[in-house]
Write a protein that binds this DNA or RNA. Structure first.
Lengths: 249, 249
DNA sequence: ACATGCATTTCGCAT
DNA sequence: ATGCGAAGTGCATGT
């Protein structure tokens, strides 16, 4: 079904797809209202609507990376005709959250199965960066030794903890991209916890490829330190693009 | 074009759409690679691909609210045939960022123009919440008075500042949803700034609909306060009283 | 189920 | 342009 379906055809087509676990794509003139964690309304215009087999509903305008309206996986969508429009009512019952897509006209409808068993493989996350630093702690600082037990105990709260060459406790916060004031505050929280545990001095090091000026100001204010390190493999990539830019320019 | 196009047809169809500012939707078997801020690869499978007129490219798997791969607005997409596949090369030159979608087979292609002049109207943001509190400061606390000049001076850093019924300075941090430990730390930063300015006591109030237990523990530890207020309910209540005022008056 | 923090976060707003 | 924080954030992970 890919011509200009009537709203009745549309209703039957979408209901059929939902009941058989097929995905739906349609281009239509519609209005959208949402209420739940906030409240929104979108006046009439032409958009793309996707309904996935997991219940996800996404409404895309002509521009922008993000959907203008959406409902997350496990949403239940029901269809009804009212005032000459086809209304998609998408609900998450428990959360008391709903979206209504009122369709006045559809220019196309497609339904289909997607066969896909692959998952994204991603490299360059903060976790990867931490792994690199654990493999070579001297990247943080010469003489730095990781405290493995400690790291396990507070896993999820602090990226790396250890001691420097003098045996002084060090909390390390790792950021894969430019450090912000937010990151500094986070490190300070960790350091404060360690300072309560030990009477002696405690150092805090923020490891990041770069930092904003406000972040640096805060670091000084809190008596914390910055160590500039680029995530390794990404650094190689950056060198290449820098080089080609140099050659071109 | 909505049957099963050949890859050559696909190439011509997509190129035509891009050059004339139409959007593209296709269902295809493909692999995807990305490199830029990180690096990723996605093995073969069937996905949906959207190309918008602003250059946005989105690849959706069968499940999940978010695209598995994407490129942001202003991306340039070029097409080429290689090894019996149609390759979409999507680049942001300055950022040295690229995504390649290698298509082995397409089951449908649609191109279309979307006419849409509407923008989303959204209610219930933090900004809206702050506005409500400014309109009725007694929601924060009986006798609370806002310091308007102060608020302008430090705009962007503190949500609301003022004095309580006793004239004691108060910093107010507003959260539209459940308050977290980080929110408490942020409020403490503001309070510390005010404490440097005045020798007397300074209060800090976190206004939020709810708070996590750890956040409450931190509030106690820092000597700060929590005021529970629901933003959306507030708005509903206001609409009602506006209405009744209209009916009565 | 809730809590916490990352994200190729994206996005808007202010400087 | 860059900095900064919010987001209907989504999402995985740990408890």
């Amino acid at each position: 079904m890919a011509g200009k379906p009537s709203l009745e055809d549309l209703k039957a087509g979408i209901e059929g797809a939902i009941s058989t676990g097929r995905a739906v794509f349609l281009v239509c003139a519609c209005r959208v209202d949402y209420e739940g964690r906030a409240r929104s309304s979108l006046g009439p215009g032409e958009r793309m609507v996707i309904i996935k087999e997991d219940g996800t509903v996404i409404v895309h305008q002509k521009s922008g990376r993000n959907p203008v309206n959406w409902m997350p996986p496990r949403t239940k969508t029901e269809l009804s005709m009212a005032d000459g429009e086809l209304c998609l009512t998408c609900r998450k019952h428990r959360e008391g959250e709903w979206m209504k897509v009122r369709i006045s006209q559809a220019s196309s409808l497609q339904t289909f199965y997607l066969e896909d068993f692959e998952r994204l493989e991603l490299y360059g996350t903060e976790k990867d960066f931490v792994k690199e630093l654990i493999d070579d702690p001297s990247l943080i600082e010469k003489g730095f030794r990781m405290n493995k037990n400690e790291r396990l105990m507070v896993a999820g709260r602090i990226d790396i903890s250890g001691v420097d060459a003098d045996g002084t406790p060090v909390a390390v916060e790792v950021k894969r991209s430019r450090a912000t004031p937010h990151d500094v505050v986070q490190l300070k929280r960790y350091v404060d916890v360690l300072r309560k545990r030990s009477d002696g001095p405690v150092r805090g090091i923020l490891v990041a490829p770069s930092s904003s000026s406000k972040a640096r100001r805060l670091l000084v204010e809190y008596g914390l330190e910055l160590k500039r390190v680029h995530p390794l493999k990404l650094e190689r990539k950056r060198s290449q693009s820098d080089l080609s830019r140099f050659v071109e320019g």
